[in-house]
C-alpha cells in the first residue's frame, strides 16, 4: 500500500482499481462454476441420503433402493447402446460425406442442416416418435419377431403401438447424431493433406485414401464422439418418457409391450406426483445417472486428450 501511495498520483490509480475488480469478477465467475458443480453432487447426495438409509419396504416398489434403480439403469443402458450402435456408423458416414464427398461449396450448408437436428427440442422428438416412428416400426418389429425371433431381443409378440425400446433407441440415435457427426466432421477435416496426397499419389481410390489416411487419423476422435453421444443418450428424458410404454423390471425384449424404463424418464414421470421419501428415491436415481454420465464423459475427454500423443503430427 505504501508503494502505491509513493507513486505519482493520477493515471495509474483508477485503472488499477478497475483491473482488480474485473480480474476478481472473472475469477469469481470461474469459482461459482466450481461451486455449482460441487453443489450438484453435494445437494443431490444430501437429498438422496434418506432413501439410502431407509428400510427397503419404505422405498417405492417395496424391495429397496437397489431393486428399484437397477432395472432403470438397465433400461437406460439398453436404449443408449441401441442408439449408439445405430448412430456411430451413420455419423462416420455423414461426416465423410460432408468432408470428402459433397461439393465444397455446399458442404458447410450441409453441416448446418445436420446441426439443426440438434436444435429440435426433445419433447418434439417424443411426440414425433409416438406419431410417426412408432406406427412405422410395427411392420419392422413383426418381421424381426418372425425371422430373428430366436434372439432374446425380439420376442414373440411385438407391440401393436410400436412404443418400444427399439423405437426409443432409433429416436435417441437421431438425437445424438448431430454431436457425433460434428466431432467426426471436425477431425476428418483436420486430416493432414500431406497424408491424403501421399495415399492418392500411390494410386489409391477415394475410399482407399480414406481408409489409409483419414480413418486412422480420426479413429480416437470417432471413439470420443461416440462417448459424448452416449452421454447424451443416457441422460435424455422427455423423448423416452413420452414414447416408451414401460413395465417394472428388466426386459431384454426390445420390440414387446413391456419395456424397462430409463432413469431419466422415470424421474420425469414420477416426480411431479411424488412427495416425501419417493422424492428422495428419485433423487438417488438421479445421482446414479449423474455418475454414469460423468464416467462416460470423462472417458471421452480422456480419449481426446490422449489423441495428441499418437496423432503423429511432427
Amino acid at each position: 500500500m505504501s508503494t502505491t501511495s509513493a507513486k505519482p498520483r493520477g493515471v495509474h490509480d483508477a485503472p488499477r482499481y478497475g483491473d482488480r475488480i474485473f480480474a476478481g469478477a472473472a475469477t469469481g465467475a470461474g469459482v461459482i462454476i466450481l461451486l455449482v458443480l460441487a453443489g450438484v453432487a453435494g445437494f443431490l447426495l444430501w437429498q438422496a441420503l434418506p432413501a439410502l438409509t431407509a428400510s427397503p419396504e419404505d422405498v417405492r416398489g417395496g424391495k429397496g433402493l437397489f431393486e428399484y434403480i437397477y432395472p432403470l439403469a438397465f433400461g437406460t443402458i439398453l436404449t443408449s447402446v441401441i442408439a449408439l450402435v445405430i448412430a456411430t456408423p451413420l455419423s462416420v458416414g455423414i461426416a465423410l460425406f460432408i468432408t470428402h464427398y459433397a461439393p465444397r461449396r455446399i458442404a458447410l450448408a450441409l453441416g448446418y442442416v445436420v446441426d439443426l437436428l440438434a436444435a429440435v427440442p426433445s419433447i418434439i422428438y417424443g411426440l414425433w416418435g409416438v406419431y410417426v416412428v412408432a406406427p412405422a416400426s410395427v411392420p419392422v418389429a413383426t418381421w424381426l419377431s418372425n425371422w430373428l425371433g430366436f434372439l432374446p431381443f425380439f420376442g414373440p409378440s411385438p407391440s401393436a403401438s410400436g412404443r418400444t425400446t427399439l423405437v426409443v433407441g432409433v429416436v435417441l440415435a437421431i438425437m445424438i447424431l448431430p454431436v457425433m457427426t460434428a466431432v467426426n466432421r471436425e477431425v476428418f477435416l483436420q486430416t493432414p493433406r500431406l497424408h491424403e496426397e501421399a495415399s492418392l499419389a500411390l494410386g489409391a481410390t477415394r475410399w482407399e485414401m480414406i481408409r489409409q489416411a483419414v480413418l486412422p487419423f480420426g479413429r480416437s476422435a470417432v471413439i470420443s464422439g461416440a462417448m459424448l453421444g452416449l452421454g447424451r443418450a443416457l441422460g435424455e428424458t422427455m423423448a423416452v418418457a413420452i414414447i416408451l410404454s414401460t413395465a417394472v423390471g428388466v426386459h431384454w425384449d426390445i420390440i414387446g409391450t413391456a419395456n424397462s424404463s430409463t432413469i431419466a424418464a422415470d424421474i420425469a414421470l414420477q416426480f411431479p406426483e411424488s412427495s416425501g421419501l419417493d422424492v428422495n428415491t428419485l433423487i438417488a436415481a438421479g445421482l446414479v445417472l449423474f455418475f454414469i454420465t460423468l464416467l462416460v464423459n470423462m472417458a471421452a475427454r480422456w480419449v481426446v486428450s490422449r489423441r495428441s500423443e499418437f496423432s503423429g503430427a511432427n
Partner: peptide
C-alpha cells in the same frame, strides 16, 4: 463435465 450433465439431473439439483 458440466456440458455432459443430463438435463433432468440439473432439475433435481
Amino acid at each position: 463435465v458440466m456440458t455432459g450433465i443430463p438435463s433432468i439431473v440439473a432439475g433435481l439439483f
